[in-house]
Amino acid sequence: MEVWVQQVVNGLAIGGLYAMIAVGYSMVYGVLQMINFAHGDIFMLGGFAGYLTISSLNHTAFGQDARFAVIGLALLAGMVAAPLAAVIVERVAYRPLRNAPRLAPLISAIGVSIFLENLVLRLDGGQPRYYESIFPRGGLVISGVHIAWGQIFIVSGAILMMLFLQGFIRFTRQGKAIRAVAEDQKVAALMGVNVDQAIVVTFIVGAALAGVAGVMWGLQFNQVDHYMGFVPGIKAFTAAVLGGIGSIPGAMLGGFFLGLAETLAVQALPKGFTNYQDVVAFTLLIVFLVLRPGGMLGEHLAKRA
């Protein structure tokens, strides 16, 4: 029993990261009906921004407690660098194709993804970079179940950011504009909504979450490399679809669900098949889509299609 609880803890931690990345996929899809396949690489850039911050600031010089400031700065760096890249990508690779056939921006996104991966490969070399272990080690032990500080940090961070995001989308003027553009771009424009601006803000918000997720990823798993965004990107996309693409709570739900599915699969799979965890996760995706194409919270999509 204890081991299953432990697996749930592990699943929630990785799921929180998927959830934060998934939001970016979902929001962009909601507004542009486009799958932004470069989103995983925006996440990667966030991870690198955090790495550069931590490695250039010598935290030991300012005493033990300075590391919390360094962690905060790293998160901030991810939150700034990733949106910056996303804005440039949107301007250069997506906006010119807004009226093109649906497949064009998709292909463009794949191109951007390959470009970003190779850019970092060229600039930084193929060697992975290791985050310094500045995050507090250890954690809580509750009747044999270990919950690392890092895991608590990820899950609470993810939930907190989702709440902020929900508030932003619900209650601010800019959030209202994004919802209007998602509903109907043309009508929104006629009503005086600045469509371009709303779309850019959508990219910024999604990328900010991905950037933070990139830094958290580095803090938790301590490695960043040019290719780190690919698999999490695909998984976050899966999570977004599972949850109902276009829906922000759906993306979060999907992320946690996928994380749990992966870790529980490792526990449940018979000896000799433990590395089939991804097979389980993606089979789940297919089954889910066949039975419920809109995902968990996907009424939004059903209406549109």
Partner: peptide, 16 residues
């Protein structure tokens, strides 16, 4: 057991 090479997270394998 076999793990997935180059994955970031083996916590579930370790719990197992």
């Amino acid at each position: 057991d076999q793990i997935t090479a180059n994955a970031p997270d083996y916590s579930s394998f370790i719990a197992r």
